[in-house]
Design a binder for these strands. Structure first.
Lengths: 141, 141
DNA sequence: GTACGTGCAAAGAATTTGCAGATAA
DNA sequence: TTATCTGCAAATTCTTTGCACGTAC
């Protein structure tokens, strides 16, 4: 994906671009690994040697506030980030500690409807935790 | 609720009791406020002046591992704890930053079924985020 | 007396803040 | 120019660890 496409993508979400911001957004669009701040930083600092972790924090906070990126708190330790804002759930594997995308249809979880008592949800996060197929095989259970 | 009932409740979940453990469990059963480590500590230290925050951490970790307590990572900052392990979702209000319980029926979210590709979920967490009725009124929207 | 629980102090890790220099419109 | 963005260093906060003492069976 071209940098100027990403620049426009950010602009359309109310975020002014910069070399660093485009790099972070590009990273999230190309890596569906739900990276942590550290992972993003360690990968990007090779291409942008002067990059600072503060900038990663600033950038991700901005992206999350503008709704360009989702923050996941599934692993209980670090925050993880997802450039895919379409409706889907996440699965955290206790074995390999990776986060997997899980399709989430209205049929699977009708989350918009029927919140009682006037609660109004702007976001929904559905987290599953357990063992992924590969780790299940290793453990024989 | 009597301390010895709580002692037995813990024992039935494989946790040996102690003054501190019973106090923490009692606190969680009596306060449905989804408290953080600090809130639990600050309240309990008045009754148990020698109480240490390390003990709260140790105790909660033990409880979560044994499935007596649920850990919530909904607020993105601190961990919160819930002594109610029955199936229900949580709602985090951006205004008052409180966590509310939300009924979660199979109809609302059929989470056990149909995880694709052999994923096997042991836990499910459904988080809503938005504004609670009181905060919605204040903001007029 | 042996194993386990508790609590202090220190260490470690993650994130935020203050501010000065760099950059872009 | 003028506002905004970046990045360093320090500060803060949250959580974990190591270890000595206490407690219970």
């Amino acid at each position: 994906m071209q940098d100027n496409q990403i620049y426009d993508y950010l602009l359309s979400h109310g975020v002014k671009g910069s070399v660093q911001r485009v790099a972070v957004m590009k990273y999230l669009l190309e890596h569906h690994t739900h990276p942590s701040v550290d992972e993003i930083y360690n990968d990007l600092v090779r291409k942008l040697p002067t990059l600072s972790k503060t900038t990663i924090y600033n950038t991700l906070k901005l992206f999350v506030d503008q709704g360009v990126v989702r923050m996941l708190t599934i692993d209980g330790k670090n925050a993880n980030f997802d450039g895919d804002t379409s409706e889907h759930a996440h699965f955290f594997c206790f074995g390999c500690e990776k986060i997997y995308d899980i399709p989430q249809s209205k049929t699977n979880c009708e989350q918009e409807i029927s919140l009682p008592g006037g609660f109004k949800a702007e976001q929904t996060e559905l987290y599953y935790k357990g063992y992924c197929p590969a780790c299940l095989t290793k453990r024989d259970c």
